[in-house]
């Protein structure tokens, strides 16, 4: 997380070798990125860019998803299997013969995602996945990230959507002016006003409420709504039966 121009996108482009460090080393699965190419690194690190229109070009959704698989040299049978799997996983099967350009914004975003997931990379990098997305699309995305985690995938996300981060509750790396200024659980970072303000971010609403309640003995580091509910109810009970 971090404000625009903090260097987030530049930073993550080092994860699949799109950019190489001028000083220092970046290792992906133990291999230095300077010693290998993007095409090799990308097999392990899938990258979904913010704007799906920056990558869609095929005549059908099916072809779009098969593009990377062909580049990576999968055989025909595997390609077919993987494409079907990705279409199903993102509920795009009905559109497989449709042109990606005829789909809505949210659907195009899912096609872009499917086209990367298809080659089953171990790590998935999502650049600003929630921009322009409505509540339901975000909820779908969150469910989808949970599924990936269950499959032991690593998910890296760049965003300044504090509410979405509060819901996902990941490890947060905060960047500012090309440097990492904080690195820790979302619960700690999203409840530190000073850090957030430096990064042009705000506290998530639940945290805002609890910073104002801290002086009556409630914990200040709550970002989750269920936790918030429990904390308040137990405080109220305490009040009734001290």
């Amino acid at each position: 997380m971090g404000q625009n121009g903090a260097g987030k996108t530049t930073f993550i482009k080092h994860f699949n070798g799109l950019l190489k460090p001028s000083l220092g080393t970046v290792r992906v699965n133990g291999v230095e990125t300077t010693k290998t190419g993007v095409a090799t690194l990308a097999r392990n690190v899938g990258f979904v860019f913010q704007n799906p229109d920056n990558q869609l070009f095929s005549e059908t959704v099916e072809d779009e998803i098969a593009f990377a698989l062909k580049n990576f040299g999968f055989d025909k049978e595997t390609i077919e299997k993987r494409v079907t799997w990705a279409l199903d996983f993102l509920s795009l099967y009905q559109y497989r013969k449709t042109s990606p350009f005829l789909l809505s914004g949210g659907e195009r975003k899912r096609v872009a995602l499917a086209s990367v997931l298809a080659w089953d990379p171990e790590t998935l990098v999502l650049d600003e996945p929630t921009i322009g997305q409505d509540h339901e699309q975000k909820e779908k995305l969150r469910q989808f990230i949970i599924q990936l985690q269950a499959k032991k995938k690593t998910v890296i996300m760049v965003t300044h959507d504090v509410e979405f981060v509060a819901e996902c509750n990941p490890r947060v790396i905060l960047m500012r002016a090309g440097k990492i200024i904080a690195n820790g659980p979302a619960k700690d970072i999203l409840t530190t006003p000073k850090l957030l303000e430096e990064s042009s971010l705000v506290l998530p609403q639940i945290a805002q409420v609890f910073t104002k309640l801290a002086h009556i003995g409630l914990p200040a580091d709550i970002i989750d709504i269920d936790e918030a509910e429990t904390a308040i109810l137990s405080k109220a009970k305490e009040k009734k039966h001290p």
């Binding site: 482009k13 990308a42 990258f47 920056n54 593009f67 990377a68 580049n71």
Partner: peptide
């Protein structure tokens, strides 16, 4: 960058 990340050489 987006296409290179999808294995385009």
């Amino acid at each position: 960058d987006a296409q290179k990340a999808r294995g385009l050489e």
